[in-house]
């Protein structure tokens, strides 16, 4: 039976269920408004390790292990682990997952990684290739600063459009059968590049990608934004959110009543001095694994369109003056 429809969408014939999820965050995220929704708030940004890279891997390892434990599954039952992060060569994920001894697909979709992982995981399950899959995404503020920007102790100012990389991880256990919530459809994003070159304004680079995937999703499934109780983007931040709403209005869709952004939910933007908002793979992953999944379980959200966003630049492409391509993956979830 054909499961793909429209231009870029898949509708699952037997929607995979979200069996369990786990989230672990750093101290700053633990001081934010969503602190109650996280499983673990580490008081130590180094997670007991001696480098930022090891800290991120350890955080990823702990989160995946906790997610499997919450699902009541020994690690041997997990058919695939799909994981992504922001460190070079996806090393946060590979070093974090190496002790599990389970089949592994490394993902790079920048901050859209959890959307990519949940999409592919749901396809693997509905395709009959697996019964249990874990999708994981992590980011670490200090590791991201080192990889993409300046040394932490350099005395510089961040522009108002800059975002704050979340130190956090979210792992989602998908299963073939269960009580829900269910992943009913996914729309895989195409790479969109509207010519933004400012790496300190990632929301502006990602908003068109989010708009592109959203419009395609609505057209492919012949629905309107009102079909969903909430449409939640990954890490557009304040500027990206304003731009997304403007682009969608231009396209004839009004998102104002249903749209929220994980980057705006995870921090108190003014009080925690995060400028445009939170970002990073761990931003959407930890917010989904905690706060959003809780709301789905309590049926406070019955239909959710979760759409993590990623800016696909590298340090080299930015320095060479290239524009920033971006991507957004939409995952439709019903409680």
């Amino acid at each position: 039976m054909k499961k793909f429809l429209g231009a870029q969408t898949v509708r699952f014939s037997q929607p995979p269920t979200i069996k369990a999820a786990a989230s672990i965050v750093g101290p700053k995220e633990g001081e934010g408004p969503l602190w109650q929704s996280f499983d673990v708030i580490s008081p130590d940004v180094l997670f007991g390790m001696d480098s930022w890279e090891k800290a991120e891997s350890e955080m990823a390892r702990q989160t995946v292990a906790l997610a499997a434990q919450k699902a009541g599954l020994p690690m041997e039952e997990i058919r695939y682990i799909l994981a992504g992060d922001l460190l070079n060569q996806n090393s946060g994920s590979t070093f974090g997952m190496r002790s599990f001894g389970r089949p592994f697909f490394g993902l790079f979709g920048a901050c859209s990684a959890i959307g990519e992982g949940m999409s592919l995981g749901a396809m693997l399950i509905d395709g009959g290739f697996a019964d249990y899959v874990i999708a994981n995404a992590s980011s670490h503020f200090c590791g991201a600063e080192k990889t993409f920007r300046f040394p932490l102790e350099l005395g510089t100012q961040r522009p108002p459009t800059a975002s704050w990389t979340v130190t956090g991880d979210g792992a989602v256990v998908l299963a073939a059968r269960g009580e829900g919530p269910y992943i009913t459809a996914v729309t895989t994003g195409a790479i969109v590049d509207m010519g933004v070159t400012d790496a300190n304004n990632m929301g502006a680079a990602m908003a068109p990608a989010a708009a592109d995937t959203l419009i395609t999703h609505f057209k492919d499934l012949h629905i309107q934004p009102g079909h969903y109780d909430k449409i939640i983007t990954g890490d557009l931040g304040k500027i990206g959110q304003d731009l997304l709403l403007a682009l969608m209005t231009d396209a004839g869709y009004d998102l104002r009543d249903v749209h929220e952004d994980c980057g705006l939910l995870i921090y108190d933007r003014q009080g925690q001095d995060v400028h445009a908002g939170g970002s990073g793979c761990g931003c959407s992953a930890a917010v989904f694994a905690g706060y959003l999944l809780n709301q789905l379980r309590k049926k406070e959200i019955k239909r959710l369109l979760f759409i993590p966003t990623g800016a696909l630049h590298s340090v080299a492409t930015v320095q060479q003056g290239e524009t920033m391509p971006a991507i957004a993956h939409a995952v439709a979830i019903e409680a």
């Binding site: 231009a7 459009t161 969109v192 509207m194 592109d212 419009i215 403007a246 396209a251």
Partner: peptide, 23 residues
């Protein structure tokens, strides 16, 4: 689909400038 023509990019650049607060 989002229009990614050169003229659309120029229009978007203006929109970004308006939405982005300066220092």
């Amino acid at each position: 689909m989002i229009n990614q023509s050169e003229s659309a990019k120029q229009g978007y650049a203006l929109l970004v400038e308006q939405a982005s607060p300066g220092s």
